[in-house]
Every structure is written in structure tokens, then in C-alpha cells.
Design a protein around this nucleic acid. Structure first.
Lengths: 138, 138
DNA sequence: TTTACTGCAAATCTTTTGCATCAAC
DNA sequence: GTTGATGCAAAAGATTTGCAGTAAA
């Protein structure tokens, strides 16, 4: 049961600052994927002095260590999610913006095929597939 | 045989300006996918007066009409490709940046499954899948 | 002639960076 | 006390926009 991001940070020799704790909390408590700006807003509500560059630097660190993953949902900005919290894929409707979550297993065939045929190890942890949802297909 | 982007533009009542002609030519003559900045550089070589905002506005128009498609290859900028010129998918290595092209048919199973099971009409025309290539897997 | 298109300059938006200060260990 | 982390301000890079002038139809 090691999805304790702060513990992991400490374990790896990173300093556990209040800013980092609040940034990690914001990511953990988000049901959905969360953007840097949203994290910043949440943290600033309790601790008005934080700077958004701290948010970006912390996210950079967490990505490097592999504690959070990044997904481009096609909004012109990236969203974050705790790596330990289960992966899923997203269907993003280009018409209405709806996002539908797919189970982690849905693309496992694809992943296997890519490895077998191309020797390519696909990172599908947070793939976003664009298209049109049932409603917007007309 | 209607992959004549300029003809289509005219047909739809858009004005065919020399700038648009050169932008379309740059996209058409690119083997690979091409970025706005690269289009701009090519056009400017012959016609130094163009402005990059014209490039962006033209690309916006061509996207709307469905004459070009956009792919995010994870470079922090988007790349363009004529919609009529055949689709393919990309495997992008996050280690060395290599991009491998997949045949259009590889993901057809996936597309069918998404339509069947989710009623989702996936636009896989230029999907980029990130991961690690044979060399970088170690 | 009409009005869509262009060039220009400035703005916007997200993310990054240099540097001096500060605080976690 | 060290050194990594932070805040601030400024930069960077891609893309967008307002506006007046220009040219395609």
C-alpha cells in the first residue's frame, strides 16, 4: 500500500515542504484529472503566498519520479493524475467536450500488438482518443 | 479525385489568395507532417511579406472545412497534414523522439470496438501513441 | 464596389527560468 | 550550516485578436 506520494518523496530524499504537501493533496483529492491552474487555485485558497512556478516545478518532479501522470485532453493545457490511482483511457468528444472513461483493459490488445509487431512499449496510461460521442454523432 | 484543396476552397466561396495558395502548397508538398512555423518559413522564402497570423488563420479555416488534420505529437506544438492524403498513426518514442508510422488498418479493430461498445465515433486519423521504441527499451 | 482577407502590433495563455532569499534536513 | 526549494519578476514560445488597409470576387 504505497500510494503515499509524500512518503515516497521523503524516502527519495526530496524535501517535504508545505507547498508540496498541499499540491499533492490537491492532486489526490481530485476525482477527475486536474490542471496546474486548478491546483494553483486550490492551494492558494489556503496558502495565498504560493507561486504557480512552484506548482509547475513540483509537477515536474512528481512526473520524473513517476508519481503522477500527464494527459493531454486537447484543451491546450495538460492535466495530472496520481499514478497509483488506476489508469484509464479517455474518449473526448470534439463536439460537446464530453469525456468518457474507458477501462484500463480495453486497450490491452492494442498494447500487446504494438509490442509484438513493432517492439514498441506503449505508455497508454492516459491516452485520450478524440472523436464524436453518441449524442453528437447526430 | 477531389484532393484539390484550393478548388474546394473556391467551391465553398472562400477567396483564393496567393497566401492561401502558398500555404496549401507547403502542406501538400510536405512528406511529413508540418508545423505552422515550418509552413511560415517556406512561404516567407518566396513571399517575404506574409505574416504568421495569416498562416494560423488559414490553418484554422482548413481545419474547419475538414481539408487538413491536426496531430499533437507531444512537441508542444501541433502538426498539420492534408486530410485527403491518407491517414496513419504514429508511435512516438519518449526517449529518443523517434516516430514510427503505423498502417491505417492497425487500429481499425479498436475503432470498431469503440463504436460498438460505446457508440463513440473515434477520429483516429492522426493518433499519436507515446511510449518507448525498441532501442530505448534497453 | 463590396466585404473577406491580410499585415501589423499587441495581447493572451501556458509554461519555464534566473536569481536572491529562505527553510527543511 | 548546507543545499535544495521557493517567490518573484521576467522571458519564452505558440497562438490569437483588434483594427485599419488591401485586394479578390
Amino acid at each position: 500500500m504505497k500510494q503515499d506520494i509524500l512518503g515516497k518523496l521523503e524516502e527519495l530524499g526530496y524535501r517535504v515542504t508545505p507547498q508540496r504537501a498541499m499540491i499533492v493533496a490537491a492532486i489526490n483529492h481530485s476525482d477527475d484529472h486536474i490542471s496546474a491552474e486548478e491546483i494553483y487555485a486550490q492551494v492558494r485558497a489556503k496558502y495565498p503566498h504560493v507561486n504557480i512556478s512552484t506548482v509547475y516545478r513540483t509537477l515536474e518532479t512528481l512526473k520524473e519520479i513517476g508519481l503522477v501522470t500527464e494527459t493531454d485532453m486537447g484543451e491546450g493545457r495538460v492535466r495530472y493524475h496520481p499514478a497509483g490511482k488506476g489508469h484509464h483511457h479517455h474518449l473526448v468528444c470534439q463536439e460537446c467536450g464530453a469525456t468518457i472513461d474507458l477501462d484500463e483493459t480495453v486497450l490491452s490488445n492494442l498494447k500487446d500488438a504494438l509490442r509484438r509487431e513493432y517492439g514498441f512499449l506503449a505508455d497508454l496510461r492516459h491516452l485520450a482518443i478524440f472523436g464524436h460521442c453518441v449524442k453528437c454523432k447526430q
